[in-house]
């Protein structure tokens, strides 16, 4: 029994070391965000000293340089608006596709599933040209594009749920005089809540972190957080390591806060998204 006991301690110790290694990169960035910009690159593992500590200077510089407040607002607006639109419209489409079963809906469903395996590079050039022609190059227009790109996975997950619903329920409602609109919003949609949470989390994680799509479509005028950070890095003149560190911290912070509050849902959602097959 002694060996079993010490085995457990050994495993615990190993996991503890790994956990420290997992958190370390973020803590190192946090630490460097308080150091002067010329004391970072050469010595990132050294704690700030009296000479190198600059307080919140990097944060002030960074926020000003990339207009972080606007970037945050754009990211938040685009993510929230896109996720809401995706939830509403793809759940409607999924229900319709499953119940209607016409040649057209079957075909539409197949193309949606197909779109999930197509890499973004395949359509990025032509899509951004179309977005330009249709005047979608603004934070509202991009929501429509996210609906299109999010539709594949979202319809797939929602329709999986609809298929598990007993049809008798809808028959009964239809005999009671429900039209499809009432049927969907009064009966089906409320039952979809857990699935909607999954779809929301998967899409939110993707859209919040997305770089290439917002860069190509609205990047020159409206910079989301990832686009703004890349811009800070690739911008003119010498790169300000201090500002970069501070902005990385500000980019990670909302994610950690969100994770702390919604961990259970996030993990569940991610598993559901993985098993999409």
């Amino acid at each position: 029994m002694v060996t079993r006991h010490s085995y457990r301690w050994l495993v615990f110790l190993l996991l503890l070391i790994l956990a420290v290694l997992f958190i370390a990169p973020i803590l190192i960035v946090l630490m460097n965000s308080f150091k002067g910009q010329f004391s970072i690159s050469g010595e990132p593992f050294r704690l700030p000293t009296k000479e190198t500590f600059v307080g919140l200077l990097n944060y002030r510089n960074g926020i000003e340089k990339i207009d972080f407040v606007s970037a945050f607002a754009y990211s938040l607006f685009i993510t929230v608006a896109s996720v809401s639109v995706i939830i509403l419209f793809t759940s409607m489409a999924a229900w319709y596709i499953v119940r209607r079963k016409s040649f057209f809906t079957k075909f539409f469903y197949l193309t949606l599933v197909f779109s999930m395996i197509v890499p973004f590079q395949m359509v990025m050039f032509t899509m951004s040209k179309i977005a330009n022609v249709l005047n979608l190059e603004n934070p509202v227009g991009i929501v429509l594009i996210y609906l299109g790109f999010g539709a594949g996975l979202s319809v797939f997950i929602f329709s999986g749920f609809v298929r598990s619903l007993p049809y008798a329920l809808e028959e009964a409602a239809s005999i009671d005089g429900c039209n499809p609109w009432q049927m969907f919003f009064k009966i089906i949609f409320p039952m979809m809540k857990p699935t909607a949470v999954t779809v929301a989390i998967l899409n939110a994680m993707w859209i919040w972190n997305d770089y290439l799509l917002p860069y190509l479509v609205i990047g020159s005028k409206y910079k989301t957080i990832p686009v703004a950070i890349q811009y800070l890095q690739g911008g003119y003149g010498s790169r300000d390591m201090g500002a970069l560190m501070a902005m990385l911290v500000l980019a990670v912070l909302p994610i950690i806060v969100f994770y702390a509050f919604a961990q259970k849902f996030i993990v569940k959602g991610v598993i559901a998204g993985a098993v999409k097959g």
Binding site: A93, S115, I130, L147
Partner: peptide, 24 residues
């Protein structure tokens, strides 16, 4: 259901066509 098709499917279809189908 057939009559309501446009309402349920068009928003997703249009967005999908613009951002994926036509560009593809």
């Amino acid at each position: 259901l057939k009559r309501w098709g446009a309402v349920f499917i068009l928003p997703t279809l249009i967005a999908f066509a613009i951002s994926f189908l036509v560009p593809f």
